[in-house]
Amino acid sequence: MIEVEHLVKSYRELKAVDDVSFQVQSGEILGFLGPNGAGKTTTMRILTGVLPPTSGKAKVCGFDVFENPIEVKKRIGYLPENPPVYTDMTARAYLRFVASIKGVPRKARESEIERVATKTSCTQFLHRVIGNLSKGQRQRVGLAQALLGDPEVLILDEPTVGLDPAQIIEVRELIKSLAGKHTIVLSTHILPEVTAICQKALIIAQGRVVAYDTLEGLQRAHAGAVTADGSPGPMPSLEEIFLKLTSL
């Protein structure tokens, strides 16, 4: 579904993304991990066609992000770090606008808005002006926007930031329920989130991939030495692996 090969993005001397390659199969959830400034957001912005890469290739649903951006964008739902909402519009007017530029047919628009609003539990505040909503509510409107048009691929940049604990669980359940039908790339630095919802994890630090495996594979690879009686060493938590790999 998503294929990234030797992706490089440099800003003058600074290499924000340095030779990143990975693949996400259809229906999978990939956890995208890394400390702040590691290049997570930059990679996601390249995948969604916001930024052109310096070199390397990225393909989504078989379309090259750079050569065929419109086809890629038709198949992607993207939630950036800050939900891209117009604070002067009501949530419903905003979702109507996004639905129309995403090409949702006019007749299906209202039912589509109801669908995503129910999924993200936005229905109670659809009539309110977004500027008056709380951070968590805005985040949910942002998430609803990404789901509009039922895109095959979802790219979510820290989707649970600003939510309260109950909502975090809700959103995690939502993302889990979307897997299978959608291919999801999810960036976060909340590690339990990855353990809770992702099958695979990609850890990057300073623009480079330092680990890319299934969660079990990661744990096995970083397990402690075999003890004297022959039993395998203690399994490390994802947190330990993350700290070990990123504290270069």
Partner: peptide
């Protein structure tokens, strides 16, 4: 300023 340009860039409009 509000970073909504990113929304426009990621939807299929030119």
């Amino acid at each position: 300023r509000q970073k909504t340009m990113e929304l426009l860039y990621t939807t299929p409009i030119t």
